Amino acid sequence: MDEITQQPGIDRPPLGDVADYPRDSNDGPIVIANEFADVVVRKVETRNGMRLDIWSPRRGTRIRLDAVALDCLSFQEPELISELLSRRPAP
C-alpha cells in the first residue's frame, strides 16, 4: 500500500521493446480444462484491433477482450475474482 494515499500500489515492470516479449510459436487455440469447466482461448484480429477470444463450449458463451480490458483484469483484487466465481451464471 502507498503510505501517502492508502491505496494499493501497482508494480509496473520496466517497459521494453515489443521484440523483448516472449512469442508463441503455436498460432492455434489453447484449451484449458478441468472437471468443472473448459475454455478455448485464441488471439483474433478484428477490425478494431487484436482481441483475446475466450469461448466456453459447455455454456456456448464467448467474450472478446482487448488489451485495455485484459490489463484492467490483471490488477483486480483476488476477492473480486472470488466474488465473480460465487455468482450463479445465467442459464
Rank of each mutant, 00 (worst) to 15 (best):
L84Q: 04
D53G: 00
T61K: 09
R47T: 11
I30W: 08
D71E: 15
R64W: 02
I81Y: 10
Q76R: 12
E77A: 08
E79S: 06
L85N: 02
V31T: 15
W55L: 13
R58F: 04
Q7M: 13
P8G: 02
K43M: 15
Y21I: 04
P29V: 05
L80V: 07
A67V: 14
S56P: 00
P57M: 08
E79M: 02
D66H: 09
P22R: 03
D38H: 11
M50T: 15
C72W: 06
S86N: 07
R12P: 01
V31G: 05
E45L: 13
K43T: 15
L65S: 00
I4W: 06
V68H: 12
P91I: 02
R59V: 03
D71Y: 09
I10V: 15
R51G: 01
N48M: 13
S74T: 07
G49N: 12
E77W: 05
Y21H: 11
I63H: 05
G9V: 14
V18L: 12
R47K: 14
R87L: 14
G28F: 04
F75M: 11
R42V: 00
P8D: 02
G9H: 06
E3G: 10
E45K: 10
L85D: 00
T5F: 07
C72E: 11
R58V: 09
D2W: 10
P13D: 08
G16W: 01
Q6M: 13
E35T: 15
E3H: 13
P13K: 11
P14A: 05
I81N: 04
L70S: 04
R58T: 12
P13G: 04
G60A: 07
P14F: 00
L52N: 01
D2Y: 11
E35F: 08
R51N: 07
P14C: 03
L84H: 03
L80P: 00
T61Y: 07
N48G: 10
I63A: 12
W55Y: 15
R58W: 03
R58Y: 03
E77T: 04
E35S: 15
R58I: 04
S25T: 11
I4Y: 12
V31F: 06
Q76Y: 04
G9Y: 06
Q76N: 05
S74M: 11
